[in-house]
Simulated assay, not measured.
Amino acid sequence: MDAMSDLRGKLHQSWGWLLALGLVLMLFGGLILTTPLGVVTATLTTEIWIAAALVVGGVLQLAHGLKAKDWNGRIWQMLGGIVFIFGGVLAFVYPQLGLESLTLIVAATLVIQGVTSLLVSGGIPEWTGRKWLILSAVLSIVAGLLVLFDLPSSAGWTLGTIVGAVLLLQGVSLTLLGLEVRRTSASA
């Protein structure tokens, strides 16, 4: 049995969590990008959407990691979920710290999540959609670093735009992974 078949077998038991996580991230990414003025100025509404997206996405990511017991990448998946939850909770609990603080929290969360996604993709052998997972991880890291290096001026327009785009792309990559695992495991 090759490494990809073994991985598909391990992930098949949790493909639904991957699919749900991908769909939720795409939904939140789309909502953030289409919130009126959310792309131009990071309003409180956009901050709440971002915090909610981080918490819900983190919970689903953590649940997937817990469900995929035999998968060696599950620790990185769970760590990424914990980081998302932590960043989202901070954004909810401390909105009075201002837009710059929230931007810093979200930027750091994006960088750490991108690193953990890269580590997860390293545990996935050749898969047709792996490039999307790697692309979303790299985009997440780059987006987080761009926001960090451009503070405080990045606190306005970039928060909604970058976070929405990153969540949308991560959602697409995880949805593709979930569907691929389901499809190939069902045919095996």
Rank of each mutant, 00 (worst) to 15 (best):
V93C: 08
G29C: 02
A42L: 12
L37G: 11
D6I: 15
L66N: 15
L60K: 07
G57C: 07
S101V: 05
V40M: 14
G58T: 03
G22V: 05
H12S: 15
T41A: 14
A53F: 05
I85D: 00
M26F: 11
T116K: 03
Q61R: 10
L118V: 04
G65L: 08
A20G: 08
L11K: 04
I48T: 14
G73R: 10
W76R: 01
R74H: 09
T116N: 04
P36I: 08
N72Y: 14
V83R: 00
L23M: 13
F92W: 07
S101P: 07
V56T: 11
L19H: 07
A53G: 14
I50T: 11
P36F: 03
G38K: 03
W17C: 06
V39W: 11
V40Q: 15
E100Y: 09
N72C: 09
A42E: 12
L102H: 04
G98A: 06
I82P: 00
L102P: 02
D6P: 05
T46A: 09
G98N: 09
L119V: 10
W15H: 12
P36A: 10
I48F: 12
T116A: 06
G81T: 05
L102S: 02
H12L: 13
G16M: 12
V40C: 13
G30P: 07
L54P: 03
